[in-house]
Structure formats: C-alpha cells, structure tokens
Design a protein around this nucleic acid. Structure first.
Lengths: 144, 144
DNA sequence: GTGCATGCAAAGTCTTTGCAGGATA
DNA sequence: TATCCTGCAAAGACTTTGCATGCAC
C-alpha cells in the first residue's frame, strides 16, 4: 500500500511533505526529531519550512500513523512510524546510539495491569538504557 | 536516613530547596513537573524562584537522586524520586490520571537485551497507556 | 472553485544562563 | 572565609499560531 492510499484511508489529502515524512520514518525504524526530518526533507523540497514539518507531524500523530515520544535525556520530541509489530529501543547513555530491538515482552503484562485497574489498553512505551561497548572502553580509559 | 545525609553522601550541601524537593518527590510516588514542584515549594518558601527549582532538579538528576522523564503526550519534563524498588506507571490517555504500579517485569529482559548487544545495563523506562473506566464511560456517552 | 496545506514571521512555552548578593560548611 | 546557592532578569531552544498565498480534490 502506497502512502497515498494510507493517507486517503485516514481522510487526509496527499501532499509531498506527508508522503515524505511517512517514507523517511518508515525506513528509519528509529524515532527522529522534527529538525532531523526537516533537514532530510529539505533535500527533496528546498523551500520547505520547519513549521510545516511540525504541522505535518501533528496531523499524522492525530491520525495514529506515527507516534510522538522522547528520550529520557533529551526534551525534544521524536516521531516514529506506527507499525503493527512495534519495536522497542536500546539507547546508549554515553553516545546516544540507538538500537532497534525486535519482539515485545510487554503486551501481556500491559493487558494484565490494565484489566486489574479497569483500563482499556492503549499502548505502552519501553526503552532500555545502557552503556555500549565503545563507551565502556572510554570510561575504563579515563579511570585508568 | 535524612535528606541531609543523603545530600552529604553525594557531596552536596544541604539547602532548604534540595531537601524539600527530595521530600516532595519521595512522598509523591509519581513524576512531577518543575512547575508543579515550584508551586508546592512556594508554600514553604514564598520567595523561591522557578530557576532555582530547575537548577536543583538538574543537580539532583546529575547525582542520580532523582530521574527526569516525560509523558508521551506532554513535552514538559517530569521528575521522579529514584528508588531501589522502582515502579512503573499506568496513564489514562483521556484524563491523564496516573497510577503507580508495583513490581517490574522488565529487569531480566533488559539485562538479556543489553548483554546480547554488548551493553552495560543502566536502567529502563516503561509506561502503560490506557483509557480509565471514567473515560470509557465518557466515550460511550458521546457515541450513543 | 472550495477547503485544506504551506511559507513566513511573530508569539508562546519551557528551560537555561549571567550576575550580584546570600547562605552553607 | 571560600565556595557554592539563590533571586532576578534576560536569553535560548523548541514548538505553535495568524495570515496571505498556493495546492489537492
């Protein structure tokens, strides 16, 4: 299914920006900031404005085509393609490298917690933070 | 152990603001914004300034006495007491009510993911989002 | 042609910083 | 007393909004 159909399915007009945002996020597999997207979109569409990117992201979030989130150490919003087989992420607290992790260990637990509290499940957010091997070396070097 | 000792253990001077921030967050069991804290602290310390609150929070985060995070639908930073037996949260996407959930289903999984990728575990963030019973009723009423 | 999307500029919100005076060990 | 903390005001970063023009259906 092309992005034109995906957008039409949500009652949205097809525009260059919307299709490109969906494509970039779909291929990225990793949450990106509005500014990062802006710089990428600018290559195809030099006249594009950052506020258009924000408006586009907002629209796509409202239609649940993408999700908005953040990393714990950064207050900027990030945006991520909303897939059926969602992934979680492993983030290095040293260099901010992000690894996309397949499989979700939470769905069952989340449903159980929700039903215990009388909630209708709507999703969850899970990230794992750690120190990657490069950063571990760097720390050791400093400690020596 | 009092907050004076906790602060001293991290090499920090004891100040009213620091002790109060720790106390409020410790009792809250739920992440709070800088502004929410500011309003509470103002009751005890009417002359307090919001920038002092931000500086205090920053200091306490750097010493790992508290943690900084956000909710998915809000870009403001929240701060949470850093306990050994950490909790996760169930958030209503309708009214933003937050329920603190005992027990963590993730530690083992997080360690496994980290060791698979050569990371040293440093923590994780997990929140569950859902629609609480009140908000479910509200939706039904609108649909009828 | 109508209604929604966009570029541009300006405003808004949250957060950080510089500086002089004040509190802590 | 030396050092770090605080209030105040100003700046900074990210995000949103108003308006006139342009594009999609």
């Amino acid at each position: 299914m092309g992005y034109r159909e995906i957008l039409a399915g949500k009652g949205l007009k097809h525009t260059k920006t919307r299709a490109l945002v969906l494509e970039v996020l779909n291929q990225a597999h990793i949450p990106m900031t509005a500014d990062e997207l802006f710089l990428i979109l600018k290559r195809n569409e030099p006249s594009i404005n950052l506020s258009t990117v924000y408006r586009t992201l907002d629209t796509l979030v409202k239609k649940s085509l993408i999700m908005k989130t953040t990393w714990m150490d950064d207050s900027r919003s990030c945006y991520e393609y909303n897939r059926m087989d969602h992934r979680h992420h492993l983030v290095c607290v040293g260099c901010n490298r992000v690894i996309s992790v397949k499989g979700c260990p939470i769905d069952e637990y989340a449903s159980a917690v929700c039903s215990h509290e009388g909630f209708e499940p709507a999703g969850h957010r899970l990230e794992i933070y750690g120190v990657c091997s490069n950063c571990k070396k760097r720390v050791k070097r400093v400690e020596e």
